[in-house]
Design a protein around this nucleic acid. Structure first.
Lengths: 350, 350
DNA sequence: CTGTTAGCGCATTCAC
DNA sequence: GTGAATGCGCTAACAG
């Protein structure tokens, strides 16, 4: 409740000037250790605390970074943000979070308010179709890093996983299990990550001499409900698939429920793999094969990359890093047919 | 890259003074609509954007609020934070997040850095045993709101759920299922929420003429592993329980796995209820009964309460609200024994 | 080693 | 209606 104490207060108290106090507080080498001690002591006595806002205005650095994600209450983004926060915290940066709910307009608004707030950098997993908003950021010379959902722009770094490879690995695994008719649940393929997973799927089929069938690819939203519906469609076919690679763990689960409801067995009749390694996939009695995206690591790396740029933002040099993480296939019961494969299971650090 | 344009730039451009520009931009009534138009036009032309930092320093309000949680990558806290962000965003506030990892020291550090950053308010789910850090906040006259893990302090608002009632409801339900020997997995009971759940459990037993047995209460960490171990202990008893109320969904799941592994049936032999309504509890084939804490709503309400105080922070009046949310028991297969109860199931909006 | 001066960008009080 | 002056709290350039 008492008025905040400033460096002027402690200066007055010591009959010196505010500049000296500032220097003492900042360990400026050219200050007598005598006065430094004095300053530090009375600073403590007066309960002084630096006003980072004033410093920010003066220096032009707020020591805040903005993070923009579709939503925060998902296992994946929660973990990424955790990684980001843990990386920035020790460096004295605060993390501001914004949600877009996949809405382009809200994303643009968030970018604007973050810029107004003078953040020192922005990390984003974008839902944007345009690149104009990002050019606005770059024009202001504030560092930008994409993660997971990226955009290819000159001078902009990104941290993603190799979604193509993720799709490829999962599909290849299903083929290795002896599956020959492999369906795919795809997300919105105008979003690059979903398209990449789809392409990986397609390539794996091609490389193994399996014909790509258009009717085996179903576009779904990432919900149980859509998974059930899609599975219904598949099971109604004359020649239904004997495996499903889903771009989402939720649709995979929905499909599993539907398949079981129709009296078919997993993995005997149909093998299923999801994507994202949601926590529930390993908790199920019928645990679900999925592709892990190491979100925590992704967050930490994205933070490191941004930090590097923030620290060099005065320099003319542009850093452009494109970090691509390796997806890890986690094989579980939903796709493990044979007993011999079961031995592999343990090797695969299940 | 171009230098940021300030109100001075647009003033110079119009041969007026910065004060006038400021007034025009802020819709000050005593400004000619002519110059206002002019200002607005050239502001747009020059791509002017307000520097919230300068405003913050001037006004003493940063328009940032801090949120401190044990961790962000959990379903519960993720949802709470989502609610908080969604409530603050439309009001022009940014949300800064900090994690403590249940470490008291880190929590104190986070409080300090948030205060330095001049946040306008703090929301916290505390891991602190002391109240001194919170007094530091109050002394600075900055509003504080507890959520979920609260502390009772004069003049401080809180938003929690009735954990006692949650524990009571779950236990009562197990009793209604005909269970007579009911064990309890308790978290660290020096944390109030866990103690309350425990007390609710105890009271339900008492109210229904069931003896409380000390050996049926096992303290666990919120992990699958601890759940398995605890279940082992129970099953080794001469007179093992026929129901478990767990303070955590994770220990509940661990217990379920162990119980099944030992060849017992759920819910026939042992009924199980968890707590928190983690997403996986409803996804399991054997879905798990749990207590929902409406985290999204909790976040929104906490934000509203804080917002109210932030807006009145100049007034002398202290607002102290204690919002207690009603926990909702979600009955699922892990505790539903009888067919007749199965009818209830639908009524209970399963 | 320390004091003086100035400015970061804005809003606001007091004049006119 | 508008201008001039001031200060929010801090740091940095320039003196000495």
């Amino acid at each position: 409740m008492t008025k905040k104490t400033t460096i002027y207060d402690i200066a007055k108290n010591l009959n010196i000037t505010a500049a000296t106090v500032s220097r003492a507080l900042n360990n400026n080498p050219k200050i007598s250790s005598a006065t430094r001690e004095l300053v530090l002591k009375t600073a403590k006595a007066l309960n002084y605390e630096q006003n980072r806002l004033a410093l920010a205005l003066k220096s032009g650095k707020s020591h805040n970074v903005g993070v923009i994600v579709p939503r925060i209450d998902s296992s994946f983004f929660g973990s990424v943000i955790r990684g980001i926060e843990e990386e920035f915290n020790p460096h004295g940066y605060h993390v501001i979070i914004c949600q877009t709910h996949e809405d382009e307009n809200r994303e643009n608004e968030n970018i604007d308010t973050l810029l107004n707030a003078q953040v020192d950098g922005i990390l984003i997993s974008t839902s944007n179709t345009k690149i104009d908003p990002f050019n606005r950021i770059l024009k202001k010379n504030i560092p930008l890093v994409f993660f997971d959902r990226s955009k290819t722009m000159n001078g902009v770094s990104s941290v993603t996983i190799n979604d193509f490879k993720g799709g490829y690995k999962a599909t290849k695994h299903l083929i290795d299990q002896g599956c020959t008719r492999i369906a795919h649940f795809s997300g919105d393929r105008s979003i690059e990550i979903f398209n990449e997973r789809f392409l990986g799927y397609k390539q794996a089929l091609l490389d193994n001499g399996i014909d790509f069938k258009h009717e085996y690819v179903i576009q779904t939203k990432s919900t149980l409900e859509d998974g059930r519906k899609a599975a219904q469609l598949l099971l109604e076919m004359k020649n239904p698939p004997n495996a499903i690679f889903s771009s989402s763990d939720f649709t995979a689960l929905g499909a599993i429920q539907e398949i079981k409801a129709q009296g078919l067995k997993i993995p005997e009749d149909i093998c299923v793999s999801g994507f994202a390694n949601e926590p529930f996939t390993k908790f199920m009695e019928l645990s679900i094969t999925s592709v892990d995206q190491s979100p925590l690591e992704m967050g930490k790396i994205a933070a490191k990359v941004l930090l590097e740029q923030v620290n060099n933002s005065n320099s003319v040099m542009k850093i452009e890093k494109r970090v691509v993480l390796e997806p890890e296939l986690i094989i579980r019961k939903s796709s493990l047919k044979t007993q011999e494969s079961n031995t592999n299971l343990k090797k695969l650090s299940f």
